[in-house]
Design a protein around this nucleic acid. Structure first.
Lengths: 129, 129
DNA sequence: CTTGCCCCTGACGCAGGCGTCAGGGGTTAG
DNA sequence: CTAACCCCTGACGCCTGCGTCAGGGGCAAG
């Protein structure tokens, strides 16, 4: 499978795959004689895992920090939460991510409150403080 | 007053003042013989208004779209909500801003929920969908 | 006169996850 | 053989509100 088909199969674009490879989320794949990247089903599965993790808010750097964890998660069936998941768990980054999400939500909610208050009291013009 | 003192008086930096000027939020100020910007109390007040509006979530472009409104708001005492505030009100941008804030808050809240759900069911590892 | 702080303009950096263009080669159906 | 589409690498663009560096001049005190 060449990059275009692999990307389509994983629901993304060739550019994204090259980007993940460059950032260390994907190992450099095999190449054809003419230098074209060759992907198998395992790589596609791995990309799907990456996309899911990104979709729930983890960053590329989060994933790059524990590349081996992607191996486990992309297995079929995936080995999740064995007795000893080792030091490769995403738990720390997930917790950090939750914290920053909470902080951001609180910040925006606060902003929204202030803005709504001002529009109510000042006719959407000047915040009084 | 030169730019450093004016910036300090308004609670910001010289760089920010030049930036506001470049983006049309501040009119080009008077210059000394040697080309240094000269500010008065009115400019400082205007900068304070700008900062408050930015702090509640409006963007530089929002403010730049209605530069005359800043004149009114920076007056002492400010003329707010006269019988005819003209077409220069921030109400439309404020409403738009509220909408984007709501959308963003909803998005982040949704993310947070999903992430928290996955950490609870999968031990902070793999999102099952 | 010199030291030291302030000002000037112009331009790049940042954070994130790619999109997109440039310039050049592969590959496959007709 | 050639059109048409795909792939390659390298590099800039995006978006916001400035921070920061580079290179060059001003101004008041000792």
């Amino acid at each position: 499978m060449r990059i275009g088909d692999a990307a389509a199969a994983a629901g993304t674009t060739p550019r994204a795959l090259r980007f993940y490879e460059q950032r260390g989320l994907l190992r450099p794949p095999a190449r054809s004689a003419s230098g074209q990247r060759e992907y198998g089903p395992a790589e596609v599965a791995r990309v799907r895992v990456i996309r899911r993790l990104l979709a729930v808010g983890l960053t590329v750097d989060d994933l790059a920090s524990r590349p081996h964890r992607l191996d486990l998660l992309a297995e079929d069936p995936p080995r999740r939460c064995t007795a000893d998941p080792g030091p490769e768990t995403y738990a720390p980054v997930v917790r950090a991510r939750l914290a920053t999400l909470d902080a951001e939500i609180a910040r925006l909610t606060d902003l929204r409150t202030k803005l709504a208050h001002h529009i109510a009291t000042n006719g959407a013009d000047v915040p009084s403080a």
